[in-house]
Simulated scan of single mutants.
Amino acid sequence: MAKHNIYTMSVASVYPLYVAKAERKGRTKAEVDQIICWLTGYSREGLAEELEKQTDFETFFSKAPRLNPSRTLIKGVVCGVRVEDIGEPTMKEIRYLDKLIDELAKGKAMDKILRNKN
């Protein structure tokens, strides 16, 4: 079975779309970066390096320093698919990120987006 096209797309090609979506709703690039770093364990510098290297999504997630264990608390529908029902691991990680960016754009508080238990 062929890989899904998103796996071979560079994160850098989609990143500006994440930022634009957030900024249209009054949120910031820094918040997008915070979400990505929280999800993957990349530092801001590490994220910038991966963007500069044009790293594809599959590699980006497979080499992530530390996928956040709280990411499994992310629930809901993205692109018509319930995130918690996605079986393929890389696609699930991509959709977790999509869901977090959606929550940011919808005005959700960062504590809730980052699944802080406070």
Rank of each mutant, 00 (worst) to 15 (best):
F60V: 06
E58L: 13
V83P: 03
T28P: 11
D85S: 14
V14M: 04
E84D: 13
R95T: 12
K117Y: 10
V78K: 01
D56H: 03
L73T: 10
S70L: 15
K106T: 13
D102N: 13
R71S: 10
I101E: 04
K29G: 08
R24I: 12
R24P: 02
M110V: 11
E52L: 14
E31H: 05
E84Q: 13
D85E: 15
R71E: 11
E52F: 14
K25L: 02
E31Y: 04
R95H: 12
S62L: 10
Y7P: 07
G46E: 09
Q54M: 13
K63V: 13
V19W: 07
T72G: 08
C79A: 11
G87M: 10
I6V: 14
F57N: 02
N116Y: 14
D98P: 10
K75A: 12
E84T: 11
Y42N: 04
C79V: 06
Q34T: 05
K53Q: 11
V78A: 06
S13H: 08
T55H: 09
F61M: 02
G46P: 00
A20Y: 12
W38H: 04
E88A: 11
S10Q: 03
E45G: 00
A20S: 15
S43M: 04
P65T: 01
M91C: 09
A22L: 03
D111Q: 13
N118K: 13
T90R: 05
D56C: 11
P89G: 07
C79K: 07
F57G: 02
L114F: 08
K92S: 09
C79Q: 09
V11T: 00
N118T: 12
A105E: 02
L114I: 15
N68G: 00
E50Y: 09
D98L: 14
T90V: 15
A2R: 12
E93I: 04
